[in-house]
Design a protein around this nucleic acid. Structure first.
Lengths: 95, 95
DNA sequence: GGCGCATATGCGCTTTAAGGCATATGCCAG
DNA sequence: CTGGCATATGCCTTAAAGCGCATATGCGCC
């Protein structure tokens, strides 16, 4: 649980998670562009999420496609859903 | 959101949160005993939770009573509920 | 006012996370 | 098999977190 929460408790990782949470596949190049991060930085952060069991990856030619882990425990997914929902709400309230 | 998640992403703080989440008031002495932590350690962790807006404190004679922040945004409370539920479930599954 | 309990905090130390840079690896095209 | 793109990783430095110890503060009791 601690590793899981630590993985989420980072601005870039959470932003990446929001993108990946659409259910689709996303390569590192796409994420680093959208999140304005360097390549090594983005790669490492995705590794952290992967080690936490939150996402999985797949080789596809010269790309690596990341997507949410379909086998993630539902309670864990519920936590992420709650976090993303809360973040969206806070932003809207603050704006 | 990051400060909020970071505050939760710690074993002792999460354990303290679980205790405090019963809605009652709890002094540092009680928490340090239940969680087997030194006084300064416990005090600092509670300060972290307080700064994150998750709990509030109240002077009561020589004690300081901590309790969950009644003004915590419902979405944030929902996140904590989800985390505590997930943790309970994982423990039960693992055992 | 002095003592004792409960809590907070300054200081120093140790550990860990993060990021940039350079380089290695995997894969495709030609 | 060579070159180029996408990604991962080793190395190093810096920043931050956590902790213990000692001490300060707040409060009640006598």
């Amino acid at each position: 649980m601690q590793a899981f929460l630590s993985a989420i408790a980072d601005p870039i990782r959470l932003a990446a998670l929001r993108i990946v949470w659409d259910g689709g596949e996303h390569c590192v190049c796409e994420l680093m562009e959208k999140l304005d991060a360097t390549q090594s930085r983005m790669s490492r952060h995705m590794k952290t999420l992967k080690l936490a069991g939150i996402i999985v990856d797949r080789r596809d030619a010269q790309w690596v496609r990341y997507r949410r882990n379909p086998d993630l425990a539902p309670e864990m997914a519920a936590v992420i859903d709650a976090v993303l929902a809360a973040e969206s709400l806070s932003e809207r309230t603050a704006a």
